[in-house]
Simulated assay, not measured.
Amino acid sequence: MAQVALFAALMAVLGLIPKIDLPMGVPITAQSLGVMLAGVLLGPKRGFQAMALFLLAVAAGLPLLSGGRGGIGVFMAPSAGYLIGYAPAALIAGAIMRAVPQRSPGVIAVGAFVAALVGGLLALHLFGVLGLMLLAHLSLKQAVIATLAFVPGDLIKCVLCALVTHTVARGLPDWQFGGRRA
Rank of each mutant, 00 (worst) to 15 (best):
V35G: 02
L65I: 09
L37E: 07
G39C: 05
V35C: 02
P88I: 11
L33R: 08
G71C: 04
G73M: 09
L117R: 09
S104G: 02
A169I: 11
G85A: 13
K141Q: 14
M36W: 02
V159R: 02
L132E: 01
A5S: 13
L37T: 08
V164L: 14
P88L: 06
L121R: 08
Q142H: 11
R180V: 00
P63M: 11
G61N: 08
V114S: 02
G61L: 04
P173Y: 07
V118N: 07
I92E: 00
A59S: 11
V74Q: 09
R103K: 14
A57G: 05
A109H: 03
A112C: 06
L62C: 06
T165D: 07
M51Y: 01
R69D: 06
G120R: 09
Y86E: 13
L124W: 05
A149G: 06
P152G: 10
V168A: 04
G153S: 03
L56W: 02
P44I: 07
I72Y: 04
F48V: 04
L10W: 03
L121G: 04
L134P: 00
Q176V: 01
L135K: 13
W175E: 11
S104C: 02
P105V: 01
R98P: 09
G34D: 01
L135Q: 13
L155N: 08
G119H: 10
G43D: 09
A182S: 14
F150S: 04
D174H: 10
L14D: 10
A30T: 11
L42H: 11
G131Q: 13
V110C: 07
I17F: 08
L134N: 07
F48N: 06
A146I: 12
Y82M: 14
R170G: 14
R103D: 14
V168R: 03
R69T: 07
A38M: 10
